[in-house]
Design a protein around this nucleic acid. Structure first.
Lengths: 351, 351
DNA sequence: CTGAAAGCGCTTACAG
DNA sequence: CTGAAAGCGCTTACAG
């Protein structure tokens, strides 16, 4: 007995106008109404004007479900965003929301990726046109979802992930280059004793940032930095910092592969180890989350161009919908943001 | 088989199975297939089993757009979340995502509420079943969207907002009670010189928290606390703190109506005013965002029960879809979280 | 319980 | 350019 009729929406005035109502009012066929709403369709300007006027009068909006049923294009893009511990997530989601809207589509949010089967059920049932896969704490759920999309023939675009075995299009921050930028900055500031705190080993954000960093150090004749790994989390940063300190010769410069780790490390360095930042230890992160700008941290970091990245990801998604997918990987450069958490070379001043 | 491809049978790229395909394979009518997928529908167990087996074999999933067209229920709930400056937003979205999924629905994300007309266009076109309206920096966009929903006959539920003129159902944190909790804590810790930093004047989260705080002070025979207002933002907290300091007798306890303000105020107090927290100044916030637990702040605050609130909001939304909406307002209590940013009464210890 | 059939509101060949 | 009509894949009275 629960529902069923779907009638009446709690006392709404009359039912919604359909294209037939508009046709009647405009004195044309229903097909003409349909055409008037498709740009470039064969309709005379006169008819289109009459239709649009009638539609406005009736408050008509084409029913997206009917259209979707007829065209098998839903106009819906799903954004699969695994764990949301990282505070860069609101900005990413906001960028995608903006970008999806701008392209006349809707954003379906998918947040629990652990059960790829369940995720795909929703994606398939709703006829989602494309899936953006991003920001999971672990890589495996992203991989499972991307693989399932490929199997089901649904375009998937990876955001800040790379899965070489999957041949999926992707947009990533230039993570290696970003790691180089950091190493370069610290070297030029005179540092020589480097430490490093990474996130999840299997993610390319982590490994690429680390490798870029290490590569630049190698060029300066320095050994790969001391390692300590964790998750991408504040607490992991704290723990790794304490771990580092327990290992002997203290570093005077620390690169963390994301801001959350860096902030945790800074707090541990100051509070538990009594170190001054940057006098005793320079700290640099990656992402430029809003908290990096807070006075307590004033964290030097590499900002991602999130808006650009989201736009590129949607470009790839639309290309994939049109069939010309490929496995294009687009790299968007990151921007060094110099703040007070790191000693800076003489030619750069903190913002 | 259950491989998440939604296709089954070897995965040859072909069109998706429809209920007719399932019917053919199971040797029943298409209506029988439809019934087998509706719980409580009149089908024999034998038929249902055959249908489900055939469906599994074909990887069949009912087409949600076709169902929506037939029932005029889309199964989609829109979450309208205005500005996302507040770091409580990921947790709120995550809670809604979880809750919406658990009820077999999909979450459509709406983030730019400034153009209520455009928002409604999307909501109406996609036949959204209900809209959750929340977390806008300003109140006006929320109001406009809620009002437009009422006009269009689409159930809307307010989350942490109250719009008395609209008669809309709402779920809110017990903000007044929360403000009282804070005042009580600070009074019992021996404080007598209170200050206050608020957010946007027009929001009930801000005014209710303030009023509850002031009411408890009044009971203790203390005047309403010194005021200073801002937006809900880190920078506003900083500015307000400096403003307060410039006004003469310095307070020894500060309540901010959200954590972001409190964190900004703490940073300004320590860095610009040279105050120690909590020795010179106790600071308390509201929300318990993840950063409140960071060592640099260890912010005493009032935690919102976000999961419960989201569940209640969805209860109201479903009630509204079934017609028995009303203007129920559900209050969910907040929980005091005692940390080190405030001097505590002897019977409470920091967590 | 079961099936044949109408209908939800569009799009799009197909003939004018 | 324009209209009549089939079809997208479901749900749900309506008769067995």
């Amino acid at each position: 007995m629960a529902d069923g009729t779907g009638r009446g929406r709690g006392g709404a005035p009359g039912r919604r106008a359909s294209s037939y109502d508009v046709a009647a009012l405009a004195g044309v066929s229903q097909s003409a109404v349909s055409r008037a709403f498709r740009p470039g369709a064969p309709v005379s300007e006169a008819v289109r004007r009459r239709v649009l006027a009638a539609a406005a009068e009736l408050g008509f909006r084409p029913n997206a479900m009917a259209r979707g049923l007829a065209t098998s294009r839903s106009g819906i893009v799903a954004v699969a965003i695994g764990t949301i511990g990282n505070p860069i997530y609101p900005a990413v989601l906001d960028a995608f929301s903006r970008e999806v809207s701008a392209r006349g589509r809707q954003l379906l949010l998918l947040t629990d990726l652990d059960d790829a089967e369940a995720v795909m059920g929703r994606v398939v049932q709703y006829g989602v046109d494309a899936v953006i896969v991003t920001a999971s704490a672990r890589l495996e759920p992203s991989r499972a979802v991307a693989r399932a999309c490929a199997k089901a023939g649904i375009p998937a675009v990876l955001y800040n992930r790379v899965l070489p075995d999957l041949r999926a299009p992707a947009v990533v921050c230039a993570n290696r280059a970003g790691g180089r930028l950091v190493a370069d900055l610290l070297l030029r500031a005179g540092h020589r004793r480097f430490a490093f705190i990474g996130g999840p080993e299997e993610t390319s954000t982590n490994t690429d940032r680390r490798d870029g960093f290490a590569a630049r150090l190698a060029e300066a004749g320095l050994p790969p930095p001391a390692l300590a790994t964790g998750r991408y989390a504040y607490e992991a940063g704290q723990a790794a910092m304490l771990d580092l300190a327990a290992r002997g010769v203290p570093p005077d410069a620390l690169f963390c592969t994301n801001d959350l780790l860096a902030i945790g490390a800074m707090d541990a360095a100051r509070r538990d180890l009594g170190l001054r930042v940057p006098e005793d230890l320079s700290v640099v992160g990656f992402d430029d989350v809003p908290m990096a700008a807070w006075e307590s941290y004033a964290l030097t970091t590499v900002a991602q161009r999130i808006g650009v990245m989201a736009a590129r990801a949607m470009d790839l998604a639309e290309a994939a919908m049109d069939g010309d997918a490929g496995a294009t990987v687009i790299e968007v450069p990151g921007d060094l943001v110099a703040r007070r958490s790191a000693r800076l070379p003489p030619d750069i001043s903190a913002s």
